[in-house]
Simulated scan of single mutants.
Amino acid sequence: MAANNVNLESNGSGEKRGKLLVLFPIMYLSGGTCVALITLGGGTMKLFFEIACGTKPLTTVEWFLVFICCAILLAQLPNLNSVAGVSLIGAISGVSYCTLIWVVSVSIGRPMDVAYYPLKAKAEMPWICSIVNALGIVALAFRGHNVVLEIQGTMPTSTKHPSRVPMWRGVKFAYFLIAMCLFPLAAAGYWTYGTLIPANANGGLFNVLLDYHGQDTSRFLLGLISLLVVINCLSSFQIYAMPVFDNLEFIYISTKNRPCPWWLRSAFRAFFGCLAFFIAVALPILVSLAGLIGAIALPVTFAYPCFMWIVIKKPQKYSAMWYLNWGLGCLGIVMSFLLVAAAIWSLVYTGVKPHFFNPR
């Protein structure tokens, strides 16, 4: 349990306060990410079947249901250690489809009417808010911070070999891979399509590739990319749902004071999968709220570690490190408020068609 891995008992009611401050953003980010993965994975399943078979036998909601059934079956693996292989497959598929999308886009070439003029709004405030909102979307792209403590909690640790050392190496390598996937994708995508990319491209660059180069690209390549996206979404669902699974089990264990039986663990996971499916169908606009989701959970990455360091290490008051960590922590909180405000402003300014219970 990510929220329970940090012991702040030395600070009086620190443990309860820590749970309140950490549990909500972690559960919120895990749940929001899983709902977004259902929307993306189910929609891509539909695309894959259309590319492979040329027919549309199921509706979007039915494809969401197919995806969550597959995800719930995979979710029966008991803990993060057991999903290491699934995680590796997901990482390989993620790197593969990101690389394929930008390589195919660049190799085919730019559409005839591509342009690169700045997308500046008529008013200054919406333009600034759009930029700040984009930072929230970037923060969501590096969203692994909600499972970092969860993963570290499963690793063996001792005074000689603390778990934070391999964990820090793993985090650096993982974020390097994410950057190597997303930054070439963004640069190559903008070079190829420029301002032809819609402001709310929920399907990402793959949908833009289908719109402008769908006829010029082999069905095998398009099918392979869509299949890799589905595999990545199914694998990612297990990782981001694990904090929710563990906390549901922890509530049962702490209440009943006995181990959680396998059938109840399966029921908890099926319940969460069904709840995420319901939200994905009821609120299909959730993918458009990426900037807001990333902004609300930002303190977990930019603020909490600084405050935790002060509580755990107890540096001398008013020393350079004390000021540095307080300053960075407060800056992280301020950034989070600014990003939330900018995300809400952008949503109000651009407008979002809700189409509740009508995913497309």
Rank of each mutant, 00 (worst) to 15 (best):
L47P: 03
F268E: 00
P359G: 07
L185N: 09
V147W: 04
V148R: 09
K122Y: 13
G327I: 15
V171T: 14
S218N: 10
C274F: 08
P359K: 06
T33A: 08
Y252I: 10
I312D: 11
V83D: 01
L29M: 11
V132I: 15
I92V: 11
Y97M: 04
I38K: 02
G291R: 07
F24V: 12
S288W: 05
F142P: 01
L182R: 03
L283C: 06
L100T: 14
E249Y: 05
L74K: 09
I151A: 02
V104A: 03
R143E: 09
F206N: 01
F277G: 00
N5D: 14
K19A: 11
L275I: 11
V311L: 10
V132P: 06
A75E: 04
P25D: 00
N146C: 06
G273R: 02
I231K: 00
D211N: 03
G203M: 03
T154M: 12
A123T: 08
C70A: 11
L283D: 00
C181M: 10
N247F: 09
W191V: 01
F307I: 12
F24R: 00
S82W: 07
L37E: 05
K313F: 05
F278P: 04
S13F: 14
W168C: 12
I89T: 08
D216L: 13
F356Y: 05
A3L: 14
L221Q: 04
T159K: 14
R164K: 14
N325P: 12
V106T: 12
S30V: 10
F67A: 08
C233T: 09
T350L: 10
L289N: 09
P261T: 03
C53P: 13
S93M: 12
T55N: 03
M180L: 07
Y28K: 13
S82N: 07
S130T: 10
L221C: 02
G204I: 06
P156D: 14
L80C: 00
G31N: 03
S288G: 10
